[in-house]
């Protein structure tokens, strides 16, 4: 009986449990080859002194000690990355949510706008950031216009007071992918709820707050986790824009890690930094999963 339950009948054929494992075994091999083994080697090298050319030399916890006690840029880059995360993730999510709600309505040209807002997610990141570099330039059309209107324009990527804003702005520009996911969630919300709410006299903002928002919290939670991980790993934007300057104002953890490995040739220390980042991200993700019970609403939990 139990054996029969394990079998699934489809198109007249019978798939056994073993078929699943056969299909997945290639993936498992790839996962070991390209993820687990490099991760294991990286963990090993994090306890070594290694210039990337010669054999790593075991040094124990020296790299970890250096990170927490001797490297001032370690803490500074973590703080800058957290600051960026705190600004960029909510801004990105709020814009994505607003756009999704807006584009979920019936209106002329809706599909065109959906495509336009999603477009930045399709464009190559490096090309887009180089374009932003030109947009932020002192002599760009945007700055020229701002200067004509307000007598002076901000030094978007040359003034330490503005560089973080510029980074958050670029990230906000790429909210199209989050928008698309939230839009799909919005379209999954049954119209029955809205009809009943309307009959009860609920206003539009009440319908949004008490029906739409709770029902899409699982999707918002997913987007939050994805955005958070991307924000903590941020590298390409500050690297392309200013290499972390001016005055290290956008010197993120990703940049610090890259510099230690590929520019300063401390590959062992860079491995150590990457493991610290991994643990930090895991900690934050676990924390969010724990707190998700308080604000993420899953339909199946309601009897």
């Amino acid at each position: 009986m139990v054996k029969n339950q394990e079998k699934k009948v489809k198109h007249g054929g019978i798939y056994k449990e073993s078929d699943f494992f056969k299909f997945v075994s290639l993936w498992i091999a790839g996962f070991f080859l390209f993820t687990m083994i490099p991760m294991g080697y990286s963990l090993y090298t994090s306890f070594t002194s290694w210039d990337g050319l010669r054999r790593p030399v075991w040094t124990g916890l020296v790299n970890y000690e250096k990170a927490f006690l001797k490297d001032p840029m370690f803490i500074k880059s973590i703080l800058i990355t957290l600051k960026y995360t705190i600004y960029a993730v909510p801004v990105n999510m709020v814009i994505a949510l607003l756009l999704a709600v807006l584009l979920n309505r019936r209106m002329p040209g809706r599909d065109v706008f959906r495509a336009i807002f999603y477009l930045p997610a399709v464009i190559s990141g490096v090309a887009m950031y180089i374009a932003w570099q030109f947009i932020f330039d002192r002599a760009s059309f945007m700055n020229y216009s701002i200067a004509k209107l307000f007598r002076s324009a901000p030094g978007w990527i040359t003034d330490p007071k503005w560089s973080m804003t510029s980074l958050v702005l670029i990230n906000a520009f790429t909210s199209g992918s989050s928008m698309l996911i939230i839009l799909a969630a919005l379209q999954g919300v049954s119209t029955d709820y809205y009809e009943v709410a309307e009959l009860d006299g609920a206003r539009p903002w009440q319908r949004f707050l008490y029906i739409t928002l709770p029902l899409i919290t699982p999707t918002l939670f997913y987007v939050l986790i994805m955005q958070l991980i991307a924000a903590l790993q941020i590298f390409t934007q500050p690297y392309i824009l200013t290499k972390g300057g001016p005055m290290n104002s956008i010197y993120t953890y990703g940049l610090h890690l890259y510099n230690q490995a590929f520019r300063y040739k401390y590959f062992g220390y860079a491995s150590c930094l990457s493991w610290i980042l991994f643990l930090l991200m895991m900690g934050i993700t676990i924390f969010l999963f724990k707190t998700s019970k308080l604000w993420v609403f899953y339909c199946e939990e309601v009897d």
């Binding site: 030109f134 330039d137 002192r138 030094g155 990527i157 824009l241 300057g245 001016p246």
Partner: peptide
Amino acid sequence: EINQTQTS
């Protein structure tokens, strides 16, 4: 613009 942050 210090350190090559100008693109123009």
